[in-house]
Amino acid sequence: MVVLTLEAVSRWSIPVLVFFFLLLGWVRRVPVYEAFIQGAGEGFQTAIRIIPYLVAMFVAIKVFRVSGALEIMAHACAPVLRLFGAPVEILPLAIMRPLSGSSALGLATELIKTYGPDSFIGRLASVMQGSTDTTFFVLTVYFGSVGIRRYRHAVILGLLADLSGLFASIWICNHLFK
């Protein structure tokens, strides 16, 4: 039942949104086609402007992971997480989550498949995946699109958002599923 509702929402929301935007435009006598073309022109420049930022970030993240530095960092952090009742297996996911969305989803899927979706690790990995964000992707793309190079406290706030999401996930999973 809940699954069906979730599926329905994710299937319907985009078409409904577009329908609503255009209907509203029509009712308010906006020349919808001309307005669309006028706005759409910006899309290309915005996407192109992001390229240097994204290449810088992708190269750094990929080399960090492929070299094995990620595993070393995971081992170094293990004692801290064990203190909070998190299994060591989820560490690579915890570190990868703010850096790269697609690799984090890959890691989470692997954990869920290996340990089973209804195991403690599977549930924790699911909650973690849903409750933290790819902070570096967001920072890179959002600031890149308007040419900002000095990020100020946005980096710290973003990382603290991930960290607090991570610890909140561990805490709630320990309470509900153990």
Binding site: V18, F21, L24, F36, Q38, G39, A40, G41, E42
Partner: peptide, 8 residues
């Protein structure tokens, strides 16, 4: 961006 311009 096109849809948003219509909404705007």
């Amino acid at each position: 961006m096109g849809m948003l311009e219509v909404a705007r």
